[in-house]
């Protein structure tokens, strides 16, 4: 509202100035800008130049010392704020990235651990079953060996018994037939026969 009033006042002032600027007594020949010889215009032209220097100096002083540093500070402040915000955003992003990486690494580690545990369990079970199988095989082999030894012993005992029986029978037969028998000779003959028949 105040601004509108200000503009209205300015608009009303303009015709007043223009009317005040009614033409001078002596008519101006040619361009008024170059009427240095005119009694009134010439004086005003020089005055215009001097006032221009003063007014422009005032403008420069106000701008250089008061207005522009303040506006510059506002703009600088905004740039600093934007830079700080961007930096904060960058930091937050880096933090989030780090957290994400940590999370990923933790997941990876847990997965590796689980994999290792599974492998270990499988290996342990494998080793245990291998050991059990080996022990069983060893026990069975031992039993087989024992059984074979018993069979061998039994066979040897049986073989020994055949020799005795054969010798006794042969001696009895020879005694009955001949009336007497030479025990060592009979034993030797029986041993020879058994040897040839492959039963010794």
């Amino acid at each position: 509202m105040r601004r509108v009033m200000f503009l209205a006042a300015l608009a009303a002032a303009l015709p007043t100035i223009a009317i005040a600027a009614s033409s001078s007594a002596v008519p101006v020949q040619g361009m008024p800008q170059l009427a240095f010889g005119h009694p009134e215009q010439g004086r005003l032209l020089v005055g215009q130049m001097v006032w221009l220097l003063l007014i422009f100096a005032a403008l420069y002083f106000l701008m250089a010392n008061v207005a522009l540093p303040r506006v510059g500070a506002v703009i600088e402040g905004r740039h600093a704020r934007i830079a700080a915000d961007l930096e904060a955003a960058q930091a937050a992003k880096a933090e989030a990235d780090a957290a994400m990486a940590a999370h990923r690494a933790a997941t990876e580690a847990a997965r590796a651990e689980a994999r290792a545990a599974v492998t270990n369990a499988v290996q342990a079970a494998q080793a245990e079953s291998d050991a059990k199988a080996a022990a069983l095989a060893a026990r069975l082999n031992k039993q087989i060996a024992e059984a074979e030894a018993q069979i061998d012993a039994a066979r040897a005992a049986a073989m020994g018994a055949i020799r005795g029986v054969a010798t006794d029978t042969a001696e009895a037969l020879v005694t009955r037939l001949v009336g007497r028998a030479d025990r060592p000779v009979v034993e030797a003959a029986v041993g020879r026969i058994l040897a040839t028949s492959g039963r010794a």
Binding site: A21, L44, G47, Q48, W51, L52, I55, L62
Partner: peptide, 14 residues
């Protein structure tokens, strides 16, 4: 002081 309407508008511009 030869202050013309031109100078007045300079003041307005400033």
């Amino acid at each position: 002081v030869s202050f013309s309407q031109s100078n007045l508008f300079m003041v307005v511009a400033v």
